[in-house]
């Protein structure tokens, strides 16, 4: 592990109740990288994500985290959940809840927390929506609010789980642009689970392709989709 490494997977096997779901994960994420994780349903993407977040310990192998990357300091944007559709909360309240991991034993949010939330609301260009109710927002606006919340929790790394699912092409393009800015201008490392290989190859610096094992990991330039898909069919 060098100084630039945030998380390193060393020959990791993941699974549930003694049954492996994915084997042979051997890769690392470094500061400022933009990693897209590709693979079909059931390829082990979400299992790998759980281990990244620390919900799941490896069955074999080792996951190393940089000493600076605290366990709660990954800004996570989960897939949209049905219960949130009619949830009464203002955008400000939602974004502020991203600060909960920072001061674990403080009952109330501090001024610094509020300033951080405000800054990330601005960064996501939703300042005009901050007093609006979350349930009244459009799909794209909701994702921006949740991204701002993830940024409140994140120090060096954000983890996005299919952030553009269900969005129309124009809004999808805007969101990709916003994430790209975060990566290039703010230096935030990004891990994105994606179903869209074209966009992945357009924006990501690195690709990780899973199919119950690691089919490809490396720079986007070296990613030969056809040969990886051929490997995927073999599995």
């Amino acid at each position: 592990m060098n100084e630039q490494t945030l998380i390193r997977f060393e020959n990791v096997t993941l699974g549930y109740e003694g049954m492996p779901v994915i084997e042979g994960l051997d890769f690392s994420i470094e500061k400022g990288q933009y990693l897209c994780v590709l693979g079909q349903n059931g390829s082990g993407k979400s299992t790998m994500m759980k281990s990244l977040l620390g919900f799941l310990s490896p069955m074999a192998g080792k996951i190393e985290r940089a000493p600076g990357l605290k366990k709660n300091a990954i800004g996570y944007l989960p897939q949209q959940q049905p219960g949130q559709a009619d949830f009464p909360a203002s955008v400000k309240e939602v974004v502020l809840s991203g600060c909960q991991g920072k001061r674990r034993f403080m009952p109330f949010y501090t001024k610094a927390d509020k300033a951080l939330a405000e800054k990330n609301i601005e960064l996501m260009k939703i300042t005009h929506l901050k007093d609006r109710s979350f349930k009244e927002l459009s799909g794209g606006q909701k994702q921006r609010a949740l991204l701002a919340r993830a940024l409140c929790a994140a120090e060096d790394l954000i983890l996005l789980d299919e952030p553009t699912a269900g969005l129309d092409p124009v809004v999808t393009e805007e969101l990709y642009g916003l994430i790209d800015d975060l990566n290039k201008k703010e230096g935030m490392a990004v891990i994105m689970i994606s179903h869209d290989p074209e966009k992945a190859m357009q924006y990501a610096t690195h690709i990780l392709h899973l199919g119950r094992r690691m089919l490809y990991f490396g720079a986007t330039e070296g990613y030969d989709r056809e040969s990886v898909l051929a490997k995927e069919r073999e599995v």
Binding site: L53, N72, Y76, G98, Q100, G101, R104, L146, A150, A153
Partner: peptide, 11 residues
């Protein structure tokens, strides 16, 4: 609001 996110933040 979001148990999955709360867990990721250590709650």
């Amino acid at each position: 609001f979001d148990p999955a996110f709360a867990r990721s933040a250590g709650t």
